[in-house]
Nucleic acid binder design. Structure first.
Length: 497
RNA sequence: GCGCCGGUAGUCUAGUGGUAGGAUGCCGGCCUGCCAAGCCGGUGGCGCGGGUUCGAAUCCCGCCCGGCGCACCA
């Protein structure tokens, strides 16, 4: 029996993972609130991401740029031009078209894509609906960036944009950061946070959102050293399905390759691009995604973003949605630093042997909410008609549950004592003495807590408790004094099945 | 944004014009004492707004939200 999106949404609602935002007023499409369990999991994902890509490394620096910044940033980045679509609608069949595509197909070239010139071009060339031949409506502007206003007066000069990506915060701070940290190439700047895109129709539970969390690294390399990656041995042997654009065009299946093989085949735009694709896959697997549910898919030329030379999506196989993007790894070249240098006048380039040059940039960009959904989907299993969420302990909402076998004062007191002890050891504990033990086990299985400590009669004889394993229901008995050590061992040596 | 379908306790669901019912969850009690046992009691609902009608969960209109298809997804 395969799981559906509504199974996931149902669990999410029932157990406090995630809810439609403002639901008491009917909600708002594309915006969701994370509840206690969901945010517990999401925070663990973000923490582990930060550890893997920032804290555990010496070459990546973490920052936190503002969500709203100078609107000029978005002009320079190309988002003001590229992120705005002018749409026309057929008055008869109601189909909508991008004005740009429509004019292109009609072989008409116009200099500027202002509303006026699009309107005139359509009128003067008597362009009709390509589907039904009907009359086209007035062009309308659809901006994928969400606008806001700052200051007391709400006019054109007060317009700001909610960031549609974090990357620009890394580029605009490039000079300051590289000077402060004394960074030498190659090095990266990383961040995570909320971004906003005015999607036309958000769909698929939390799959397409208007406000979502992205974690990004902008990794800067010397354009003359693109194929000199000293860290390549870290990823060389990682195996993953890779689907090149040629294979897609020729309708061939994706092929299993190691990152090393793929690089040697010339599939990646450079060695660092291959390296970061490998690291992204490595991380996803380390938090519980099965390798067979992942693949790297190269963007076709028509899909490439305005800034990208080559992009690979890491796609995850959602049983109810098919293969969908959860991570993108783009080679942005020197596009952004060059644009910002030209627009701002600041020198966002480096000097080597007296020669000025722009670093190239490889950008791994992680859609955290989609990864959250993938992790929940991956973990969702049914045992004896009950849901067991087999999350990796690293991303479980709590480390351990503490349950008294009986709801008697001395059992509860002992549970509280152990709870306090483990909290002092920095475990995220979950204590529950509200119901019966079987019911408590079922509940913690559903929210994915990997281990449960049970206080039973024997506890009062010899100060031992049992640790019960979510995945097997097996129990082991252990001295209370050994608990912290054992739990730490279990958490970090956990092997996904 | 267009088209089709839908929206009843936290969740699942019965109810097609006449007193909203059940299951589950949640809270309390009894009992039991290691994997959602049982019994008793309690809590909680017709997405929002307008209209038709003596009377609307039910019919009509608008909106909001969701699902599917199209379009969109740099």
């Amino acid at each position: 029996m395969s799981i559906s999106l509504s199974d996931i949404a149902n669990l999410a609602k029932r157990r406090g993972f995630i809810f439609l935002s403002g639901e008491i007023y009917g909600g708002i499409a594309g915006f969701y609130d994370y509840g206690p369990i969901g945010f517990g999991i999401k925070r663990r994902i973000l923490d582990d991401w930060w550890w893997f890509f920032v804290s555990s490394r010496d070459d990546v620096y973490g920052i936190s740029p503002a969500i709203i910044t100078s609107p000029k940033v978005w002009v320079a980045s190309g988002h003001v031009d590229e992120f705005i679509d002018i749409l026309v609608e057929c008055a008869r069949c109601k189909s909508r078209f991008k004005a740009e595509t429509l004019l292109e197909e009609a072989g008409i070239k116009i200099q500027d894509f202002s509303m006026e010139s699009v309107k005139n071009a359509i009128k003067n060339n008597n362009i009709k609906c390509p589907k039904c031949g009907g009359e086209l409506s007035e062009p309308r502007c659809f901006n994928l960036m969400i606008e806001a206003h700052v200051g007391a007066v709400k006019d054109e000069s007060s317009v700001v944009y909610l960031r549609p990506e974090i990357a620009q915060g890394m580029f605009t701070n490039f000079k300051l950061i590289s000077a402060i940290v004394g960074a030498r190439l190659p090095f990266g700047i990383a961040s995570y946070g909320k971004v906003f895109r005015n999607e036309i129709s958000p769909r698929g539970f939390i799959f397409r959102l208007r406000e979502f969390e992205i974690a990004e690294i902008e990794y800067f390399i010397d354009p003359n050293e693109q194929n000199n990656c000293a860290l390549f041995s870290e990823v060389e042997n990682i195996e993953v399905k890779i689907w090149t654009k040629e294979e897609q065009k020729r309708e061939l299946e994706p092929k299993e390759r190691t990152i090393g093989e793929a690089f040697n085949e010339g599939i990646f735009s450079n060695m660092w691009h291959a390296y970061w694709a490998g690291k992204a896959v490595e991380w996803l697997i380390s938090i519980g995604i099965k390798p067979e549910h992942l693949r790297l898919r190269e963007h076709l030329e028509t899909e490439l973003a305005h800034y990208a030379k080559q992009t690979f999506d890491i796609e995850y196989y959602f049983p109810y949605l098919g293969w969908k993007e959860i991570v993108g790894i783009a080679n942005r070249t020197d596009y952004d630093l060059r644009r910002h240098t030209n627009m701002s006048g600041e020198k966002l380039y480096l000097t080597k042997n007296g020669k000025e040059f722009y670093p190239y940039c490889i950008e791994p960009s992680f859609g955290i909410d989609r990864i959250f959904l993938a992790i929940i989907t991956e973990a969702y299993t049914v045992r004896d008609g009950k849901i067991v969420l087999r999350l990796h302990p690293k991303v479980a909402p709590y480390d351990v549950a503490i349950l008294p076998l009986l709801k008697k004062p001395k059992f509860i007191a002992k549970a509280k004592e152990i709870n306090t002890m483990l909290k002092l050891e920095r475990f995220a504990t979950y204590i529950d003495f509200s119901g019966k033990i079987g019911k408590a086990y079922a509940k913690i299985d559903e929210i994915g807590i990997p281990f449960a400590i049970t206080i039973d009669h024997k506890t009062f004889e010899d100060n031992t408790v049992t640790i019960r394993f979510r995945d097997t229901k097996n129990q082991i008995r252990i001295q209370v004094s050994e608990l912290a050590k054992k739990l730490r061992e279990l958490k970090y040596n956990y092997i996904m099945q």
